[in-house]
């Protein structure tokens, strides 16, 4: 059993950070006895607290932990995909089979693409320029939308 003066010396070293783990264990034991000198009683709660904290245990592993942590949007995405597959399956089933379409009818509906073909180089250049212009404008629009959304998010997070 540690005496009051021994405990006092050890406590001094404890607060200087020069005690070993073994000495700290002895100190803890001294405070556990309940027979603590009134001069040192102010430290009772601290040592009692460390003892209590050491008894804290992790809760049992939950089998459902992974399911609980799965984001809701995954379920929404999966549900939407299943619904789409179901709808697509129904739609394809409702289509007449290929053999139901008369070959003669199919032939009559052939499109003559030659009349749409661009033969004039200048016209081809204009068509190409318009196509590239549209693509460029759409890409710039996407960037603008992205920048706008990021700015909005920053404003909300401020």
């Amino acid at each position: 059993m540690m005496t009051h003066s021994e405990a006092e010396i050890l406590l001094h070293r404890y607060f200087e950070g020069t005690t070993s783990l073994n000495e700290e264990m002895n100190l803890r034991e001294y405070f556990r006895t309940g027979d603590v000198h009134p001069d040192l009683a102010e430290l009772n709660p601290m040592f009692a607290y460390w003892d209590k904290a050491a008894k804290v245990m992790a809760p049992p592993v939950k089998r459902t932990a992974m399911r609980r942590r799965m984001p809701l949007r995954w379920f929404s995405t999966a549900a939407a995909a299943i619904l789409l597959l179901f709808a697509a399956g129904t739609w394809f089933n409702d289509l007449p089979s290929l053999t139901d379409v008369p070959i003669a009818e199919a032939k009559t509906k052939t499109i003559d693409w030659s009349k749409y073909e661009v033969t004039d180089p200048e016209e081809a250049y204009i068509v190409l320029r318009n196509a590239l212009g549209t693509a460029s404008a759409e890409m710039n629009r996407s960037a603008r939308i992205t920048i706008r959304e990021i700015s909005e998010a920053r404003r909300i997070l401020k």
Binding site: E42, N44, P45
Partner: peptide, 13 residues
Amino acid sequence: IRALLLKEKISQP
């Protein structure tokens, strides 16, 4: 922690 304990005057667990 010791300073806070003294300041708050907590003596018994």
